[in-house]
Computed example of a mutant assay.
Amino acid sequence: MHFTDFDPETFLRDHWQKKPLLIRDPWNAWRNPLDPDELAGLACEEAVESRLVAHAADTDGDRWAAEHGPFRENRFGELPPQRWTLLVQAVDHYVPEVAALIEPFRFIPDWRIDDVMASLAANGGGVGPHFDQYDVFLIQGLGKRRWQIGATCDDKSALLPHDDLRLLAQFEATEEWVLEPGDILYIPPGIAHNGVAVGDDCMTYSIGFRAPSRSQLIAHWADHVLAELTEDDRYTDPDLRLQGNPGEISAEAIAKLHAMVMERMGGRNAFARWFGEFSTSPKYPDIDWRPDAPMDAAEIRRRLEAGATLVRNPASRFSFVQKDAGGALLFVDGECFECSEESGAFVERLCAEDSVATEPSLIKSEPAMELIRTLVDRGSVTFETDD
């Protein structure tokens, strides 16, 4: 599926991180990529992150309950006829048809994309009025959902007391739409919103975008720098001179101490390499995607010479940074691979496309073949004919 009536440049100029946008069915032919029963089945899997959110309204006010998966298969038969929502994270990791929903949105850089969350709701189901700290495209897959948009919120906005849900204590809708299959609602960070299913079998796909906070970047980057330092790397002052007041920390000392820190913290190339590894780290690092048995280099070469296509694992994250001296740093699932100019075109295609057919010249390159073998062994890529 792809867009036929959507202009990314206009969207980025007028709406991205600025204001919400309702996009009425821009697809060439919308098809819901996942059956409700299949989504419920995923929520029963041990490795899959899922939640059930139920809502009841009575004389004591609204009551919200959250339950975390994995769920028993018969759990869904026990649910009430209305006012519940099942949410399953990273469905794109497991269902290629859902992963394909990301492709039309790749006018946003890949490192910003988080995952595709899918939800299934009974009539009246929702997760309550809330706000997110990231951009999100909400695609209506099946059924109908009423979306309300409210004010801009921040960490000072009052929340209801709840251990698992961050629900706004006050919400007043300023705009409202009912989305039908194929419709999309874009919501920037900080905008209050509330979605409620209109009828049963309401399925929504949420494509979320990562936005690291300044504190996250500083903390993780500092941890990385600290891991590479030694106890012997200390302040020295062999040029120390007598000063008038021993209680003063001199300007010279401050400058030297500051430079001592910034010299290691401010290296742009080192930061770029670290961020490539940091931003491509797997969402669920404990899941092992490696094949049952490693494939030797001769078998990989035979398959490529026969015209086999390499396919990226939807759960893997790929990015690259061009090196000043030529070639590129390829980042895959938190690992960095130094690539020469010889394999640069292949690296760029691998980051741009879900599947790549290798050129004959690349098959003759030993560094390129070693890279492909490593990625196959790690489960980051496979061959199109494999499961």
Results as ranks from 00 to 15, higher is better:
residue 164 D to R: 11
residue 44 C to P: 09
residue 208 G to W: 04
residue 3 F to A: 06
residue 221 W to D: 04
residue 40 A to L: 15
residue 387 D to G: 14
residue 179 L to C: 08
residue 12 L to Q: 12
residue 126 G to P: 04
residue 283 K to F: 07
residue 157 S to L: 08
residue 83 R to T: 08
residue 89 Q to N: 09
residue 91 V to H: 00
residue 73 E to C: 11
residue 353 E to P: 03
residue 370 E to W: 07
residue 106 R to P: 09
residue 75 R to N: 11
residue 261 V to F: 12
residue 348 E to L: 11
residue 23 I to W: 08
residue 386 D to A: 11
residue 385 T to N: 13
residue 91 V to L: 01
residue 334 G to P: 00
residue 158 A to N: 07
residue 187 I to R: 00
residue 274 W to V: 05
residue 278 F to G: 00
residue 114 D to C: 04
residue 384 E to Q: 14
residue 162 H to L: 07
residue 293 A to R: 13
residue 93 H to W: 06
residue 24 R to N: 12
residue 21 L to F: 04
residue 301 R to W: 07
residue 23 I to D: 07
residue 80 P to R: 08
residue 24 R to S: 12
residue 6 F to C: 05
residue 325 A to Q: 15
residue 13 R to P: 09
residue 164 D to I: 08
residue 144 K to M: 14
residue 10 T to E: 13
residue 334 G to A: 02
residue 253 A to G: 09
residue 226 L to C: 11
residue 215 S to M: 10
residue 297 A to N: 09
residue 102 I to Q: 14
residue 124 G to C: 05
residue 302 R to L: 10
residue 351 C to E: 01
residue 194 N to Q: 08
residue 272 A to D: 10
residue 317 R to Q: 11
residue 242 L to N: 15
residue 350 L to Y: 02
residue 122 A to R: 01
residue 248 E to D: 15
residue 249 I to P: 03
residue 385 T to D: 15
residue 246 P to T: 08
residue 291 P to H: 06
residue 145 R to Y: 07
residue 9 E to N: 13
residue 98 V to S: 08
residue 267 G to N: 15
residue 273 R to N: 07
residue 112 R to L: 05
residue 375 L to C: 04
residue 8 P to W: 06
residue 28 N to P: 09
residue 7 D to K: 08
residue 62 D to S: 11
residue 386 D to E: 12
residue 146 R to V: 06
residue 48 V to C: 06
residue 207 I to H: 02
residue 216 Q to D: 13
residue 116 V to D: 00
residue 96 P to K: 07
residue 347 V to W: 01
residue 386 D to T: 10
residue 318 F to K: 00
residue 242 L to K: 15
residue 256 K to V: 14
residue 121 A to S: 09
residue 225 V to E: 06
residue 103 E to S: 12
residue 89 Q to C: 06
residue 224 H to M: 08
residue 26 P to Q: 05
residue 32 N to L: 12
residue 210 R to I: 06
residue 174 T to G: 14
residue 345 A to R: 12
residue 299 E to R: 11
residue 376 V to A: 08
residue 263 E to C: 15
residue 295 M to S: 09
residue 93 H to G: 05
residue 84 W to Q: 02
residue 134 Y to R: 05
residue 273 R to A: 07
residue 307 G to P: 04
residue 24 R to C: 13
residue 309 T to G: 09
residue 57 A to M: 15
residue 33 P to V: 01
residue 177 W to S: 02
residue 131 F to L: 09
residue 218 I to K: 05
residue 67 E to D: 14
residue 74 N to E: 15
residue 104 P to C: 11
